[in-house]
Amino acid sequence: MAKEAVITLSDVDVQFREKNRSVHAVDHVDLTVERGDIYGVVGYSGAGKSTLVRTINLLQRPTSGAVNVLGEDMLALSPKQLRTERKRIGMIFQHFNLMNSLTIAENVAFPLKGLKSKAEIDKKVTEMLKLVGLEDRATAFPTELSGGQKQRVGIARALASDPEILISDEATSALDPKTTSSILDLLKELNETLGLTIVLITHEMEAVKQICNKVAVMDAGRIIERGSLLDIFAKPQEQLTKDFIDTTLQLDAAIESVRKQPAVAHLKGADQLVRLTYLGASTDQPLVATLYKDFNVTANILFGDIQILQGTPFGNLIVVLSGTQADIDRTFKYLADNDVQVQHITTEAE
């Protein structure tokens, strides 16, 4: 089924002119987000991801390019039309950006004031607070809440005007890992129950891994790699993408300690230290058993990490393969044919 594109950025370019230099924050980027996507945009700070997503609701006007959101050519709208359109695009922020002078309920009611009757607003606010699990804190003030609770209020406020798209600008970056996880779960739930399309920008690959179905990697204002979450994890092309994936595995520390093990320090003959990365279908076969049974190659597992991405296992093993040179060569061919990525690891510390 062809899905409907709800956000289309075409050749979007943003340059900031300062006194004697110009900063190219977003460098001719194309991006298409389809309805129901949770699209992760990952990159280090300064990569331009915040600027890029701000072109979606025109908080940042692009220097050139086209922005189409929910069928509207955003750049052609009058200020008044733009404000109406913005109500269809919710946004949450790293520092929550709640009004400290208003109660939680008043914060959630904020975007609705003057548009609906008081009774309708009260009903909506109650519904929203219930959705994010804060119905008992309606009369509290933001300063009385924890970071995770504040972000829940931010989400309730963003969803009060029934948007079809939610932009999350580093929304979990100021939260601890446990709270981050619960906020991400909430976003995933909203995506599934409300059909909400989410654009999530973050520098944490862990967050992308937890809920996104698509991911784009940004560096120096450009999207250097993009695709479905599984494709990106299975076959990352760019070094930066690989680095981001490795941050979710704690692989560097593992490799260091693997190198110190006797089995690695004294590799014999054709023995090889390799990292095997595999995804989904390839893991249905008992890999290690197959290598031994069909190829006479033993795989000594020194480190293993298997995670579930969107219901699909994603495995990373560091193994020593032992056997004759011919058997090992046949093994590599078999692994390649079965979509298992093989990466050789030097036995000496770099």
């Binding site: 404000r83 913005r86 109500k87 919710g90 520092h95 950006n97 709640l98 904020f110 406020r157 005007s161």
Partner: peptide, 21 residues
Amino acid sequence: DPGVIEAAEAMGISPMGIVFR
């Protein structure tokens, strides 16, 4: 907080609304 102003802009509040509210 400029972040709060930005949030109000993102919600489609007019400049006059942002001044008063």
